[in-house]
Write a protein that binds this DNA or RNA. Sequence first.
DNA 1: ACAACATAGTGAAGCAAATACACAATGATG
DNA 2: CATCATTGTGTATTTGCTTCACTATGTTGT
Lengths: 152, 152
Amino acid sequence: MRLFGLTVRLGEEMEKGLVERGLTRARAAVIWQLHERGPVTQRTLSQALRVSPRNVTGLLDALEAGGYVTRSRHPTDRRATLVGLTDQGAAAAARLRADYEMGAQVLLGGVSSTDLATFVRVLDHVLDRLQGASPATTSPATEGVSGRSPAG
Amino acid sequence: MRLFGLTVRLGEEMEKGLVERGLTRARAAVIWQLHERGPVTQRTLSQALRVSPRNVTGLLDALEAGGYVTRSRHPTDRRATLVGLTDQGAAAAARLRADYEMGAQVLLGGVSSTDLATFVRVLDHVLDRLQGASPATTSPATEGVSGRSPAG
DNA sequence: ACAACATAGTGAAGCAAATACACAATGATG
DNA sequence: CATCATTGTGTATTTGCTTCACTATGTTGT
């Protein structure tokens, strides 16, 4: 039951951590995707983040202005744009990853490894059930959107 | 590790469920608070939800227009407004509660009771650590903001 | 070759959530 | 009763997000 409460609280805390670092949740998600996937088109980002293409344009405008990402022409498709992380963007991603693991250590420190194993097992179970609850929106042709991890 | 990923995914799913029912996350949170606390002032809501008073005004404007809540004069303090749920608002809260428990059953169904016990124990542990990570913003005079549960 | 259709990104318009600042009305206090 | 604090709201702004319309391109069928 407390699972939902935790979701809200943890989500808030994650967002707070991001904001303290000058990023928003949405922008951090973009950086994270680029970190996980390397340079991709905006279309790919739009599908990975499950937001409208127009929204990606806006997020990238901000991130580009902030010096986190670069847009370059796609080598073969002149309609498309390739988006990649700048050095600053890559550094931000690395910091995200570090904070994220540190956060996990803080939150889960003191939990016995057997309990942790059980916890993770149930977590995966829940994640699995979630997977089955959504794909009405997901196009079958799309790859599995695995790296939808967060930050903070 | 997957904890953060789950937080994001579950948060998304919760929000999706709400939107399908014509509510947004923020407005559902208001309804939930009123459900848990009964009629309160906007100030109280602002503190419970940890958002600015101005934001509460806006959320209540929308909820009042939608017929979910009513604003009435405070019996003793003529500055303050007492906010309460309408019948429709109470019905929405009841539906939230039902869906929320049903969701838990879907997500946690098939988990053995011993695993569930461990899971909840670790969950509480994490929640505890979260509590300790934030109260820089919380005023000491305020009660514990316990009912910060969600919906979906 | 070329018309027809599909796809990639963006402008325009708009909504929701949230913020900060300013302010009027009211309450509380020395 | 003057001063200070509190309550709610107007104005303005930021961010995330959507839909619709549109241009520029790619792709395909005949």
